[in-house]
Amino acid sequence: MVLTIDDMSFGVGQNLTIAGKVKSDCNSFSINIGHGPDSIALHFNPRFKYNKDRKVIVCNSYLGSWGVEQKERDFPFNQDGDFKVEFSFSNDRFLIKLPNGNMIDFPNRSGDDKFKHLHVKGAVKLHTIEFRYTPPQCALTGWGISCTHLLVFLHHYKGKSQVQSASHSTGTLNHITDKMVLTVKDMTFKAGQELSISGKVKSGCEKFSINIGHDADNIALHFNPRFCYNGDTNIIVCNSNQGGWGEEVREHGFPFQHDEAFKVTINFNNEQFYIKLPNGTMMSFPNRHGDDAFNHFDVRGDVKVEGIKMK
């Protein structure tokens, strides 16, 4: 598994772009869109060498059982090569834009107009997941840039805000127990890169977190906006976990609102993480691991993630 998103609504009128790099030993990989692992409306499966298939794209659906495969011989993927695939759909069909610009389509056998589950599996590394809104008249006609509005942007920035350190880790559990929204297990985030996360806070959210590290129990940055949790009200708590939680850093500037969109941009070096908040202000947190690359990233809590991009 490379990536799983369980609560990222993808609806008619949106485009989903997934970009990354195929690993040199990849035999096949898949992008699955649906309601869950047992309800897949689109199984998009490029196969370099799998069973008897050689350089073919297989599309299918799993709605209680696998349907009839659709095979596409146009195969613009290369091992150790970059790729970008774009998806759009209506109640009748999915449209898929391949890396070479050619289009293929696959019937929307579920007939649904919204899906919340996205799953990518196989020997690939991802660097971009983004949503764009496409007006209805443009949704199935070539996906011209003039018809789209990009929901994810990246910014370069300088400076940081003043933060307050707490003497102990109040209210931080040994394990984060919030509902998982998104997990990325093989999307390397390196010093000097920027990671942008955009989404929407749900109306009843008490808190959510963005976690960056080596795995779920080895977290270099735990970024945790708290609306109302364990005595904290409208505060951002940052921490790290290396066999146990460290000292909290607290930021009282709180530019998050229930039922409103947000965007957070993060970069880092061996000494510090720098976090650009939705209002444009900066805060920092020490890179206590001292590492220059992390491959685990997750988002938890009552938020909907609408876009992720790395640069």
Rank of each mutant, 00 (worst) to 15 (best):
V58C: 09
V249F: 06
D74Q: 12
N270M: 08
V184W: 07
C147L: 06
Y133F: 10
N218P: 02
K309W: 00
F256W: 03
G36I: 04
S161I: 11
V303L: 04
G122S: 13
V12F: 09
F131H: 12
F94A: 04
P255I: 07
N78Q: 15
V264P: 04
D291C: 02
I212N: 03
E130V: 03
G171L: 04
F153I: 07
Q137D: 09
K55V: 05
K200W: 03
T170W: 11
H35I: 05
M103N: 07
Q164Y: 10
K304I: 10
K71L: 08
A19H: 01
V201G: 00
H149G: 08
F268K: 10
S198P: 00
S196G: 12
K202S: 10
C205F: 09
K202C: 04
T281W: 03
K116G: 00
H289W: 07
G171R: 06
E194F: 13
H175F: 10
K116S: 10
I308M: 06
G142Y: 00
N270I: 06
V12G: 05
N295D: 11
V68Q: 14
H127F: 13
K121D: 12
N32K: 15
G67K: 13
A216H: 14
D292W: 01
F83L: 03
I104H: 09
G64C: 02
G111C: 10
S9C: 06
D82C: 02
L150M: 14
P76V: 01
I212Q: 01
G171D: 06
S61N: 14
I308E: 02
H222M: 09
Q70E: 13
M187D: 01
K114N: 13
G231S: 12
S24D: 13
H214K: 15
A216T: 09
R250N: 11
H155T: 14
M1G: 15
I104P: 08
V85W: 07
K309D: 08
I197V: 15
F115E: 04
R109S: 12
A216M: 11
C138E: 02
R54Y: 14
H43N: 15
F29N: 00
R93A: 05
A41G: 14
N108G: 11
L98T: 07
D82A: 11
K125S: 13
K309P: 00
F75E: 03
V85Y: 02
K55C: 15
G253E: 11
D105A: 06
Q14P: 03
D7E: 13
F285Q: 05
F189G: 04
G144V: 09
T148K: 10
Y62L: 11
V299L: 07
K311L: 09
Q272F: 15
G142C: 00
N174W: 03
I31A: 11
H214A: 11
I18C: 07
M180T: 13
S90F: 10
G36T: 03
N27M: 03
L118K: 08
L150S: 14
F89I: 02
S88L: 03
H175G: 04
F262V: 04
P37A: 13
I219R: 01
V56D: 02
K84F: 00
